[in-house]
Design a protein around this nucleic acid. Structure first.
Lengths: 338, 338
DNA sequence: GGGGCGTTTGTCACCGGCCACAACATCGAA
DNA sequence: TTCGATGTTGTGGCCGGTGACAAACGCCCC
């Protein structure tokens, strides 16, 4: 059992423990000769400082807690991979916690995170009660919401401009001459859902078009399928549907094509939201609004580090616009119109 | 800045620090009355023990390091979600590290993991040099390889029976009457690739069928597309192809159908490996071998905890058989044949 | 050769818990 | 009543580092 401590290195190098510590602390004052001695002894013994022990008195663990609800939607693995790599490059590491949308469970998950003395928390697609966030703020632990806003409290958050995105989709469908436009919603507690739908409805309203039908898919694949079945077995069907994210849009397209034998986009136009990798696979070729995952990740880590360095920085709601990706799953406007 | 320590609680409850500690240590001897006093004081102050400080002298951090190469292939997010939840339920948490297949990078990643005093390491789809694993063993930190074997060293590992799986696929294609059977390989350094191909070739050999063509896709979506383009623009095309995982198989099917206007399975049969969620989406309806992700996760955590409790347990290579999922992407054998 | 200055070094207390140990209280049995 | 057994409590050292502080060192210059 070869645990090597700074004392072992100190003895071998003939110096004190703190000399060893200083060699491994950037910006500490050590002479070249001791540094060399310590380096050699450390290498010979295979010594590496114990991060946990260090964090005990520096008060910084260099651990960032990441709370995430589900990885089924491809958007999150993509984002997590980027987040983790970015943080890794800056010497931080990610402690992952799976949470449900259940508030009580989230509470205990955050508690456990705090037990680990994380330096900061990133909450992806999870709602946080305000007493929870207050507790974190009180401890000086910055929280950043990823791909979600909080309406009641002023939290730092990063999301795409879901209202504008929803509006763009409505305008696109309207320009394409659709008359009976429907919506399959995600989980109604999510700000992404609320904003996307609000923008979408606004876009329809501007064109004096009512929402023709509405079902709920809860951001879940199977639930979305059922929603699609209900929506498209009615006597009069929509001629276009905005599905609240790509993940559900694929489910809807499958039901339309393979169960109901309807053609997309000839019979029904389908648009989604996120622009995950599968969206541009030719089998789906989904018209959607891109969530700029890498810019969102960059903004998230920047906001995190900014608050880590200066806790006084006020909370900001960062909103990034993403482009409409026009592909083949929805009828396009005729020439001349934009 | 409301950091609450055991001392604060002790003072408020009128007891010693160790009394507080005992209340939060299962199996310690405390009277009912002190326990009650401490509980109340702790609740009033919002006290929770500092896991990092605790780990310093118990020597157990309750952190499990998870090294993973890429999340693009849907199989990994699925597995990670399960792994994380299972470990969470047992009071452990997952520190995620992204690694490449580059050996040097993996080395430094593992070093960083060790800095965090992780109790165990799970390496998913990553190769580990033997000096690395030796170092971990030496420190008494169990390593479990997930979805990968190591040929040179005796490491605990969990994988599906890739040889049998490959053989099943070959037998199925042979029974379907295919004559020109090809293979698009993944990354050739991966045991999954080596085993799947070995089993597949064995199956072909048993039927006296040579491998008609072979390309390399490196488990990467775009690389697989290029491989498919090369393979299927030749004068004489294969009539069946085994793509080394589902993720690449989707890429291949897209190229066949949308670029080369070939029909699947009428012109070419495609089979994959993994049975990720997308495989049963009707757009692909992919015949594949299921990797039993939940059983693999259970086996992984079981092996982990077994070695954590008793380090003397010898390393085991756990191999789980997964069924052939017969769907519509490959021509099926005629009636009467199995 | 001695004084002054900046750098390097070791000493020691501390981070927040846990645990071995000894002290103490309580209680039953001799 | 006394003794020992049992159960509970506080003391103090330790886990593996860091950092304030002051001592020791080297160096330059007078």
């Amino acid at each position: 059992m070869g645990k090597v401590t700074s004392l072992d290195v100190a003895e071998k190098a003939g110096v004190s423990r703190s000399a060893v510590s200083r060699v491994f602390t950037p910006g500490a004052s050590v002479s070249a000769s001791t540094r060399e001695k310590v380096r050699k002894a450390a290498a010979a013994l295979g010594y590496r400082p114990n991060v946990l022990a260090r964090s005990l008195n520096t008060g910084r663990s260099r651990i960032v807690g990441l709370v995430v609800a589900y990885l089924e939607n491809q958007f999150y693995p993509e984002a997590i991979e980027r987040l983790s790599k970015t943080l890794q490059a800056k010497g931080y590491h990610v402690l992952v916690f799976m949470a449900s949308n259940d508030n009580k469970a989230t509470q205990s998950v955050i508690d456990e995170l705090l037990d680990y003395q994380v330096d900061a928390i990133i909450a992806a697609s999870v709602g946080l009660s305000s007493d929870l966030t207050n507790r974190c703020e009180d401890l000086g632990i910055p929280i950043v919401l990823f791909n979600r806003h909080q309406y009641d409290s002023q939290l730092t958050s990063v999301a795409s401009d879901n209202i504008a995105g929803g509006r763009k989709l409505a305008e696109f469908l309207v320009a394409g001459g659709h008359q009976r436009v429907a919506h399959i919603a995600g989980w109604e507690g999510a700000s992404t859902q609320i904003d996307r739908e609000a923008g979408f409805l606004e876009g329809l309203r501007n064109a004096n078009l009512p929402l023709f039908a509405r079902e709920i898919g809860n951001f879940d694949f199977e639930t979305a399928k059922e929603a699609a079945r209900r929506m498209f077995t009615a006597a009069e069907k929509p001629d276009a549907v905005f599905v609240a994210n790509d993940h559900m849009a694929f489910a809807v397209m499958d039901v339309l094509r393979f169960e109901l034998r309807l053609r997309v986009p000839e019979d029904i136009s389908v648009v989604g939201y996120d622009d995950v990798a599968i969206a541009h696979w030719p089998s789906y070729d989904l018209t959607t609004v891109r969530q700029p995952a890498n810019r969102m990740v960059t903004a998230t880590t920047n906001a995190l580090f900014a608050r880590l360095e200066n806790p006084a920085i006020p909370a900001r709601q960062i909103v990034l616009e993403g482009p409409l990706m026009i592909r083949g799953s929805a009828r396009k406007p005729k020439e001349g119109k934009a």
